Amino acid sequence: MHLTILSVGKIKEKYAKQGVDEYAKRLSRYCQLQFIEVPDEKAPENLSPAEEEQVKQREGEQLLKKISDHQHVIALAIDGKQHSSEELAHHLHQLGLTGKSNVVFIIGGSLGLAEAVLKRANEKISFSPMTFPHQLMKVLLLEQIYRAFRINRNEPYHK
């Protein structure tokens, strides 16, 4: 399986970078993993709703340029479907069985994802109704993907 983590912005915090590196190393025995980051747009806190949409649109355009037609796209969005770890493991397994083994997970920036990106996504998943920093979300996503591979191989870790 080939997995791409496509995200807005670079990881700046040392602890988050260490977490990403650790799970990337662990996942290397289960899949091909690629990281693609697009620059985040400047978004001061006093933006109008229209300006927020413009920022998301510009980030969205950059994200969409990095996706090919044959990739299965999973957007991380608050209104997406929530899965247990076992359900996510089963879902990833099913994607592989049905020939959708080139999967892109998209993590948006501080304002979320543009509507065009959400429309391109084959599905949306949510980890929680809470909002998380995108740097931390990358670590959480990788941990759950790693857990999914361990579950699917009946290897200890997930309990």
Rank of each mutant, 00 (worst) to 15 (best):
G80N: 10
N122A: 12
Q144H: 09
S126M: 14
A16S: 13
G99F: 10
L64N: 01
I36A: 10
T98L: 13
P39C: 05
R153S: 06
L3G: 03
H158V: 09
E53A: 03
Q144W: 03
K14Q: 15
P39I: 08
G99D: 15
I5V: 05
H91T: 10
I67Y: 03
Y23L: 02
Q82D: 07
E86G: 12
A77T: 12
E51D: 03
H2I: 12
P133N: 15
I107M: 05
R29K: 15
V20I: 09
H90T: 15
H158F: 11
Y157R: 04
L136T: 06
L95M: 04
S126L: 11
N154A: 13
Y23C: 00
N122Y: 05
V117K: 00
Q94V: 12
K42V: 11
K14G: 12
S110Q: 13
V55Y: 00
Q82W: 06
F35P: 02
R150E: 14
R153C: 05
L111F: 02
Y30W: 06
E86C: 11
K56F: 00
S85H: 08
H158K: 07
L118I: 04
Y23W: 03
V73I: 08
L3N: 04
A75M: 09
K14H: 14
Q57S: 13
E155K: 07
S101T: 09
E86R: 15
L111R: 01
Y23G: 03
K10E: 15
R58V: 04
P44H: 14
A43C: 00
N102V: 11
L142P: 02
A89S: 08
K159H: 14
E13C: 07
I67K: 02
K119L: 14
V117N: 00
K14Y: 13
G112D: 02
V20M: 12
G108V: 01
L118W: 04
M137Y: 09
G96C: 07
N46W: 10
K119R: 14
I151A: 08
E59Y: 02
H134P: 01
E87H: 08
A89N: 03
K138D: 06
K81M: 14
L142D: 04
H134G: 04
F132R: 11
A24G: 08
A16P: 07
K42Q: 10
G96V: 09
R29H: 05
D40A: 11
V73Q: 11
E22S: 13
D21M: 13
I36S: 06
E45G: 15
E22T: 13
H90C: 13
I74W: 03
G9F: 07
I5R: 04
F132W: 13
A77G: 10
V117R: 03
V103Y: 00
K56D: 01
G80V: 10
E22Y: 13
E41S: 04
Q34K: 11
N152W: 09
E45L: 14
V117L: 02
